[in-house]
Amino acid sequence: MTTPVSNRPLRVGVFTTSSVLAAAEGLGLFAQNGIEVDVEEVKGSGQQMKGLREGTLHVVHTSPDNVMKARLDDGDDVFVFFVQDTGLPQLLVGRAGVDTWGKVQGGRIGVDDPKSGFAFVVYEMLKGNGVSVEGCDVVSVGTSRQRLDALIAGDIEVGLLSAAMSARISEAGLTVLAGAADAVPWYPGVAAATSRAVADSRPDDIGAYTRSLHDAMKWASDSANTEVFRAHVADYLDITSDEAARIIDREARARTSTLPDAVASAEAVAKVADMRAAHTGQTVEGAFDARWVLALAP
């Protein structure tokens, strides 16, 4: 029996619970590695960073750019410690009638925060398809669900939505213009971040969490485990087997690579930093710590 590395649960804040996180719990990997994990779905990156700052969250799954913004704007000593995969399960969607890039030009672009996170990804997608961001009206529209509502209401022309909303996108008669994974295939998908305070006080917990996700990703990538994987996701999320299969398939289709090593992870985070610099003129350092990924090496 594994000796617990901590007698305190590790509180993890996510936007949505990934299939691999569900598999790690279902396989008992957290327990095997000596930790207990409490997962909380949060409404936005601001809540995540506030949680890390105040100690109500110990780990978050977030965009590396949210980490960079917190470092620059709030002076938070937060950083990414694990990149599980690359490829974003995000879709750039047009409201009813906006079904070509030409119809996007000059319209309202809905993003979480115009100067952070996936907004820069949206700008790259628009630019790559001949749309001038400067000629559009970029507006802040909260969460992915709120952007979906704004698209349905016709309040914005384009918004970046989670691929988990594919069914609702189709039902509402909206148009998927492009997938983020095609535009920025190197962008980290699931990136786990923490604060320096947690890393210094609970380094073994962070190591146990890293190994658990790493091993769950390896296991989930083996086609021989497909049926059991589906069952774990269905059980953890309290959904049907068919719904679990759709989640697993959607996440798999968005991935461009899995389990990048320390060098590849550092390069991916550095590219996010370069994107931020290109759009804001801000440079940031220290947003990735390879210590726990390096410890995975045999």
Rank of each mutant, 00 (worst) to 15 (best):
T3C: 04
G13C: 03
V14C: 06
T17C: 07
S19I: 00
L21F: 12
E25R: 15
L27C: 08
E36P: 03
E40A: 15
G46S: 13
Q47W: 14
Q48M: 11
L52D: 01
R53T: 10
L57F: 15
H58T: 03
S63F: 13
P64R: 02
D65Y: 10
L72D: 11
D74G: 06
G75P: 02
D77Y: 10
V78R: 00
V78T: 04
F79Y: 12
F82M: 08
T86V: 11
G87Q: 00
L91H: 06
V93E: 00
V98C: 07
G102C: 10
K103W: 14
G110E: 00
G110Q: 00
D112W: 13
P114Y: 10
K115C: 10
A119Q: 01
V122I: 08
Y123K: 06
Y123W: 10
V131F: 12
E134W: 14
G142A: 07
R145D: 15
L148T: 08
D149M: 03
A153E: 13
I156A: 04
E157K: 13
V158R: 04
S162P: 01
R168I: 03
A178V: 14
A178M: 11
A180Q: 03
V184E: 02
P185A: 04
Y187D: 01
Y187E: 01
A197V: 07
A197K: 03
A199V: 01
R202T: 06
D204K: 12
I206L: 14
G207L: 05
R211E: 13
H214S: 09
S241V: 13
R250S: 14
R250K: 10
R253I: 09
A254C: 09
E267L: 05
A268G: 04
A278S: 12
H279L: 04
V284G: 01
V284P: 04
R291F: 15
W292Y: 15
P298G: 08
